[in-house]
């Protein structure tokens, strides 16, 4: 690809105690592309995602986002970036149980200072885009796993982030529900032009990506290494 990558991890090292989680891990994500990080449990793929999202700090190596060194940023600067330009979707348990689904989706906009009414209007449009308008007034505990994940996807996209990080977003769903979530997620991300970094151990989920990188023992293997 001719353009500069939007997000680059270079030679990341990270240990948890004596366990090596990342060992010279490098990967690049271009604007608008969907990258699948694949690999067995414990391979380091989620750790890599957390480093890319600025949630974890590597012991060594560098993460660059839009030309800025994420690893050298102040915590508050990184948090602000996560609120405005990055989106996150996890396997489950990410919605605030006391808020309705509509309020959950509006939350990132509210945290960024958007007026309540505008935030709710935007949230409603995203729920509709993810085909879950009917759960707007329900709390997360009152909706199915598949509906909850669609709400979580809506929430991750509501700020129109440049990168969405998704860690096993369909891991708790059956194949039919998981598939619909992936279809809606990837289509919506492509519409907004967001890049997606997707952690999955399921090939059927990875098949929604444009490229894959395989993480094994904390190292990344991409096809560039093979060719």
């Amino acid at each position: 690809m001719a353009t500069e990558p939007l997000l680059v991890a270079e030679n990341l090292h990270l240990r948890f105690g004596t366990t090596v989680a990342l060992d010279s891990a490098s990967v690049a994500v271009h604007a608008g592309e969907v990258l699948a990080l694949m690999g067995p449990s414990g391979s380091g793929k989620s750790t890599l995602l957390h480093c890319l999202a600025g949630i974890l700090h590597p012991d060594a190596g560098r993460v660059t986002y839009a030309g800025r060194d994420l690893t050298a940023m102040h915590d508050s600067e990184r948090s602000a970036l996560r609120r405005t330009e990055l989106g996150l979707v996890f396997q489950f348990g990410q919605l605030v149980p006391e808020l309705t689904c509509l309020e959950n989706v509006a939350l990132p906009l509210r945290l960024n200072g958007a007026p309540r009414r505008a935030a709710l209007r935007s949230a409603a449009a995203w729920l509709e885009r993810l085909e879950v308008s009917d759960v707007a007034g329900k709390r997360p505990g009152q909706v199915s796993g598949g509906q909850g994940q669609r709400v979580a996807v809506a929430r991750s996209l509501v700020t129109r982030p440049r990168v969405v990080f998704a860690d096993e977003p369909t891991g708790a769903l059956d194949s039919l529900n998981g598939e619909r979530v992936m279809q809606l997620f990837v289509a919506a991300a492509r519409e907004t032009g967001a890049a997606v970094v997707l952690v999955t151990h399921e090939a059927r989920v990875a098949a929604y990506s444009d490229h894959e990188a395989v993480v094994r023992d904390g190292r990344v293997r991409t096809m560039e290494h093979v060719r």
């Binding site: 090939a203 990506s209 894959e212």
Partner: peptide, 13 residues
């Protein structure tokens, strides 16, 4: 194995 994985994923895509 990597080459084969890439080819399988290409077809799956």
């Amino acid at each position: 194995l990597d080459t084969q994985r890439a080819e399988h994923l290409r077809l799956m895509r």
